[in-house]
């Protein structure tokens, strides 16, 4: 059982949703990322996703794209991602979110082992289909980490069952058809998707894409086991006049969202 599995048992017992915060390694700098992780923890997030910045992020909107460019310009690679993971996982359950090619380049078995060695609970792979996962599933089992897949509102029921049967830790439900980024409202499709996923699995379900406020977190926490927030934190850092103010804003936003995930039920 990973630390992530234990977290979801705990929040189920507390009858609330978990707050999962996302930051790309190397953003706004290597040391800055480590300070953001500390700000997340100070604000009460339950788990952290470390993003592996990638040159061609087709699932990401402008906010995370810009952060990825900054992170890559800062020289972020596997080593930096694993370092950030190690720092985060010392305090809370932590996972890496990455497009597939960096894993394949690093070595599939080696990557899974490195995640485990740095305290990580799992890896979210948004562009890895189950058909291409044969080697990866074996690697995650060997290293006892969770393979986390993303499902979408367009995913048909039969396929949902196939995907969730390969999943570990939680199922990442994309709230809408589209890319990452803050939205004025969370898509109504999210609730329907979560209900459809529930019929296929007992795994926890976390909702991502478009969540940025306490009210939205509260709304999603009513039906999901986890609420994932990424772009809103990055935007808080980008919009701040300096890093210190940015970190304060991150902690403040985390506190608000942490209240939201406790108000849903």
């Amino acid at each position: 059982m990973t630390a992530l599995d234990q977290l979801f048992e705990k929040v189920r017992a507390e009858n609330r949703a978990a707050l999962i915060a996302y930051i790309p390694a190397g953003f706004p700098s290597q040391a800055g990322c480590h300070r953001v992780i500390a700000a997340f923890i100070a604000g009460g997030v339950d788990a952290i996703e470390i993003g592996y910045p990638y040159s061609d992020p087709v699932m990401d909107g402008p906010t995370i794209q810009a952060a990825a460019v900054t992170a890559l310009d800062n020289g972020t690679g596997a080593e930096e991602v694993l370092e950030a993971l190690k720092i985060a996982s010392a305090s809370v359950p932590a996972v890496v979110m990455t497009y597939w090619n960096p894993i394949e380049r690093f070595g599939v078995d080696k990557f899974a082992a490195a995640i485990a060695a740095n305290g990580g609970s799992g890896v979210i792979t948004p562009d890895l289909t189950i058909e291409e996962s044969v080697g990866w599933i074996g690697a995650t089992q060997t290293s006892s980490i969770n393979p986390i897949y993303v499902v979408a509102p367009s995913t048909k029921d039969a396929r949902l069952a196939q995907v969730t049967s390969k999943c570990g830790g939680f199922v990442y439900a994309a709230s809408l058809m589209g890319v990452t980024g803050a939205r004025a409202s969370v898509s109504s499709g999210a609730g329907d998707l979560v209900a459809r996923v529930r019929k296929t699995t007992d795994l926890p379900i976390a909702v991502g894409l478009g969540v940025s406020t306490r009210e939205q977190a509260k709304g999603v926490a009513a039906y999901a086991d986890g609420v994932i927030v990424g772009s809103a934190f990055i935007k808080a850092i980008q919009d701040a006049p300096n890093e210190e103010e940015g970190l304060k804003a991150v902690t403040e936003l985390a506190r608000e969202l942490a209240k939201g995930v406790r108000e849903g039920r």
């Binding site: 562009d127 890895l128 058909e131 994309a174």
Partner: peptide, 19 residues
């Protein structure tokens, strides 16, 4: 599934699988 030896395949977000 469109494999040519070890090449080809589908590496896409689940949202596109239906299409």
């Amino acid at each position: 599934l469109g494999h040519f030896g070890p090449y080809g395949g589908r590496f896409v977000p689940e949202a596109l699988i239906g299409a």
